[in-house]
C-alpha cells in the first residue's frame, strides 16, 4: 500500500514533505531526477546583481561531511527571472525561490521583483530568505542579529503576497530569539539549519583547504546539531511551520526531524552523494511513515 505523503504548509498542498535545499540542486539534475516527485525545489540563492562567487577550492571533504564556500555565484535577479527559473516552471512541482541581500532593502527589492514579474505565481510556493550564508561578507549578520532578522523578514512581507520562509543559521548563541524575531515579523515558516561555520587545513602547507579560508560544514556530520536546533525552536514556538535541514541521508533521518517537530525537510549534501537520493527517500518514507 502506498502511503500518502502529502502535507499542507502555509495553505498549500505539497505532494511530499521532501524538498531539495538551496544550492545543492540545479544544473543538469533534471536529467537524473524526476522533479515531479519532489515536494518542492528550492533554487540557489539569487542576488540583486550577478555574482562570480569565491575563488577555488570551493569544496573539501571532512569526516562524514563537506565544507563549501561557493560565495553565492548566481546570474542576478534579472537573468534569473527571464531565463533560469523557466527551466523549473515546466515541472509539476513547487518552486521556492531563495533570495540573498546585503540589507533589508535589498531583500525587499528582490522579493518585489519576483512579486511583480510575470512568472506563474501558483508554482511559487514561497520565497526563502537566505539570512544565513556564511560565505559572503556580512552575510551572517542577518541571522545573528535578531533586529536585522526581524526588519528583513518584515520588509519582505510588506512587498509580497508569496509566503516567506526565514532560513536560520546555526552559528548563533540562542536560535529561539532569532526564530521568534522572524515569526513576529510575519514569517510563514522557519527553515533551519544553514551550514555550520567551519575550516579544514593542510598542516604540511599550513594553509586552508578552502579558497576563502573558512566555509560551511554540511552533511551527516551536522545532523545532531540540526536536530537540536529544530527541537529548541519547536519547544518555544509550537505553531510555526518548521522545515528541517541538516545531514539528511535517508528516510530514517527524515523521521527523526519529524520527531523533534519539523513539518517538512530539505535535503542538501546528500544530492551530491546520490543524485536521485530524494526520490529514494520518498519511496522509503511511504513504507516507514506512520502518520
Amino acid at each position: 500500500m502506498s502511503q500518502d505523503l502529502s502535507i499542507r504548509l502555509f495553505g498549500k498542498a505539497f505532494k511530499t514533505p521532501i524538498m531539495v535545499a538551496s544550492g545543492t540542486f540545479g544544473g543538469i539534475y533534471d536529467k537524473v531526477v524526476d522533479l515531479n516527485q519532489l515536494g518542492a525545489v528550492v533554487l540557489k540563492s539569487v542576488t540583486v546583481n550577478p555574482r562570480k562567487g569565491n575563488p577555488p577550492p570551493r569544496i573539501v571533504e571532512t569526516a562524514s561531511g563537506t565544507i563549501n564556500s561557493i560565495g553565492l555565484e548566481n546570474p542576478g535577479i534579472e537573468s534569473f527571472l527571464s531565463d533560469e527559473i523557466h527551466r523549473y516552471l515546466a515541472f509539476d512541482t513547487f518552486i521556492i525561490i531563495s533570495i540573498a541581500g546585503k540589507s533589508p532593502e535589498e531583500f525587499a527589492f528582490l522579493a518585489k521583483k519576483i512579486q511583480d514579474s510575470d512568472i506563474d505565481k501558483s508554482k511559487i510556493a514561497a520565497i526563502e530568505l537566505n539570512l544565513s550564508c556564511p560565505n559572503v561578507a556580512g552575510g551572517l549578520d542577518f541571522s545573528t542579529k535578531s533586529d536585522l532578522a526581524f526588519s528583513t523578514t518584515k520588509s519582505v512581507k510588506e512587498v509580497t503576497k508569496i509566503p516567506v520562509i526565514s532560513k536560520l543559521s546555526p552559528n548563533v548563541t540562542d536560535i529561539v530569539v532569532l526564530a521568534k524575531a522572524c515569526v513576529d515579523a510575519g514569517a510563514d515558516a522557519i527553515s533551519l539549519i544553514n551550514t555550520v561555520k567551519a575550516m579544514a587545513v593542510d598542516w604540511k602547507t599550513g594553509k586552508s583547504l578552502i579558497g576563502s579560508q573558512v566555509g560551511g560544514l554540511s552533511g551527516p556530520a551536522i545532523k545532531p546539531i540540526a536536530l537540536r536546533f529544530v527541537y529548541e525552536v519547536r519547544q518555544a514556538l509550537p505553531a510555526v511551520p518548521i522545515i528541517g535541514i541538516g545531514g539528511i541521508m535517508n528516510a530514517h533521518d527524515v523521521l527523526e526531524f519529524f520527531s523533534v517537530g519539523a513539518n517538512a525537510v530539505q535535503i542538501g549534501t546528500a544530492n551530491f552523494v546520490e543524485a536521485d537520493i530524494t526520490v529514494r527517500i520518498t519511496d522509503d518514507l511511504r513504507r516507514l511513515w506512520r502518520r
Partner: peptide, 9 residues
C-alpha cells in the same frame, strides 16, 4: 561536488 553542474564547486 555534484558533477551535475549544481554545486559550482
Amino acid at each position: 561536488g555534484c558533477a551535475l553542474g549544481a554545486c559550482r564547486a
